[in-house]
Nucleic acid binder design. Structure first.
Lengths: 107, 107
DNA sequence: ACAAACTACCTTGCATAGCAATGTAGTGAA
DNA sequence: TTCACTACATTGCTATGCAAGGTAGTTTGT
């Protein structure tokens, strides 16, 4: 999978999943991996950054299957950013589609 | 516009336009700009790189409206790469859509 | 003749984000 | 006690887009 395509989009994916409910990092990696190849080394710094920027809060929960899990919860501010980012993404994809399909409809 | 989204995608756009017919750099900037914000400082190095990699050939044409134009022509190898890249892009977008719409269809 | 605006090319240095590789620890099964 | 899995984390590398700058030719207005 083209690494470059993912730039900025994984952030959108994390927001989208957390909008549905709290998750811990490892869980996010697995959920996103169902559809997009992703590495742990990407997710953890990303979560750290977005938390620092105030878009997520965190809390620890003990686990019986391994070390404690750090759950992430989206904030109101995070929700705002998510909505904007999602719209930006959708219109970007539309723009790209116009470019790559321009030939198909030309006379 | 989110700069990160464009990573790798502008390459796809350039391929797509050149697949329809030869273009010079400045013309590509204008065509892509109809749909996506782009800068000259992005396109020229990109064209240079893809030419160096054997995906384009170039030829100069005198212009009556300014300096000579450097036209780019896609090669057979370039066409191959374009097809792969386009498919990668389409399946990537599909993957992302699955992630960001997962909530909409959950019971 | 001169300046501004447009066409058309190009380069340098910076910022960003994803990843491979690596490390730490806890749990559970062979 | 070793392997596999869960779960966290960090470092250094790479790739790409952009702002800002430059060079040159053409056209238009004054």
């Amino acid at each position: 999978m083209n690494i470059q395509f993912k730039k900025g989009v994984l952030e959108l994916c994390v927001f989208a999943i957390l909008e549905e409910g709290d998750c811990y990092g490892y869980e996010l990696v697995n959920k996103i991996s169902e559809n997009i190849t992703i590495s742990e080394g990407t997710i953890y710094p990303l979560l750290r950054r977005l938390t620092k920027e105030g878009y997520f809060t965190t809390y620890l929960v003990e686990s019986s299957e391994g070390p404690p899990r750090k759950y992430y919860k989206i904030t109101d501010e995070g929700l705002e950013v998510y909505k904007n980012l999602k719209n930006q993404w959708l219109s970007f994809v539309e723009g790209v589609n116009h470019v790559i399909e321009r030939g198909d409809n030309l006379e």
